[in-house]
């Protein structure tokens, strides 16, 4: 009978709210803080790795995941729900895109696919919403010629091309470049220049508002990320307790092969504990 009558657990309250989704957001707001900052030449994702016991082996714990070679993800909220979403995101990026177009999805397309999965959990029978918010960071290749950025938007504005911003690429499917999205349990998603989710999101966002500037370089962004984390962190900060993922220049050393013509390494990679330590000593 269970399969015959299966109702959505997320139903409207008389006041027009979906309280299950609000509860899911409460779960997110109790989660460990995670943040993301978009720079001109990349993105940084950072979070704290909290272990419940000093006996736990922190090197086995991982909260930032690679989805496609150019897209990575971090979460705040329920770890198991996040793992399911990482699996779905990796799967859908292939079945829904790579296997069809022989290229990886642009960030927004992947975000929409993951958001769809999360939205379906708010309307389907017998399931509960996912108890996580996500930060998705990715680099898009873009389709506009390098020397004609914004050609589509700037039509009719010839002669003003000298006023282009330094750095130029600000992300998106057309121009290409870095993109940072937040996805919530309701399935809604937002693009950000910099944001934070989780327990101390409000504090972190206030801090980011003060420190963020236009034309930020990736190195500066990593620096700001660590400073922001320092404001909100509860335990000690070191390479073991901090996790950082960056979207930057192609990391050809991660290809695993050499001498293959035209092979480009992944732009998304996680910093090693040693690299994090190095950043921390320079803080």
């Amino acid at each position: 009978m269970a399969d015959r009558y299966s109702f959505s657990l997320t139903t409207f309250s008389p006041s027009g709210k979906l309280v299950q989704i609000e509860y899911a957001l409460n779960a997110v707001n109790q989660g460990v803080t995670a943040l993301g900052i978009k720079a001109t030449n990349g993105i940084v994702l950072a979070t704290e790795k909290k272990s419940s016991s000093p006996l736990a082996d922190p090197s086995s714990l991982s909260k930032i995941s690679l989805i496609t070679p150019n897209i990575g993800m971090v979460y705040s909220g329920m770890g198991p729900d996040y793992r399911v979403l990482v699996d779905r995101a990796r799967k859908v990026s292939h079945t829904g895109y790579k296997r069809i177009y022989n290229e990886y999805p642009p960030t927004r397309i992947l975000v929409q696919d993951v958001a769809r999965v999360m939205q379906e959990a708010t309307q389907s029978g017998g399931v509960r919403p996912y108890g996580v918010s996500l930060l998705v960071a990715g680099w898009d290749e873009g389709i506009l010629p390098e020397d004609e950025e914004g050609g589509e938007q700037k039509e009719g504005e010839k002669g003003e091309e000298g006023e282009k911003k330094a750095g130029g690429k600000t992300g998106g499917i057309l121009k290409g470049g870095p993109m940072l999205y937040q996805v919530d349990p309701s399935g809604s998603y937002f693009p950000w220049k910099a944001t934070a989710i989780g327990k101390s999101a409000t504090t972190a966002k206030t801090f980011l508002e003060k420190r963020y500037t236009e034309g930020l370089e990736l190195e500066d962004a990593v620096h700001i990320a660590l400073l922001t984390l320092k404001e909100t962190i509860e335990g000690e900060m070191n390479g073991e307790t901090i996790e950082i993922g960056i979207v930057g220049p192609p990391a050809d050393h991660l290809l695993g092969v050499e001498g293959v013509e035209g092979a480009v390494g992944p732009r998304f990679r996680k910093l090693t504990p040693q690299e994090i330590e190095d950043y921390l000593t320079n803080l």
């Binding site: 069809i100 022989n102 290229e103 642009p106 397309i109 389709i143 057309l174």
Partner: peptide
């Protein structure tokens, strides 16, 4: 995707 398809993408 709010963009035109590229020939290589279309070929795939």
């Amino acid at each position: 995707e709010e963009r035109h398809i590229a020939p290589k993408t279309f070929a795939n």
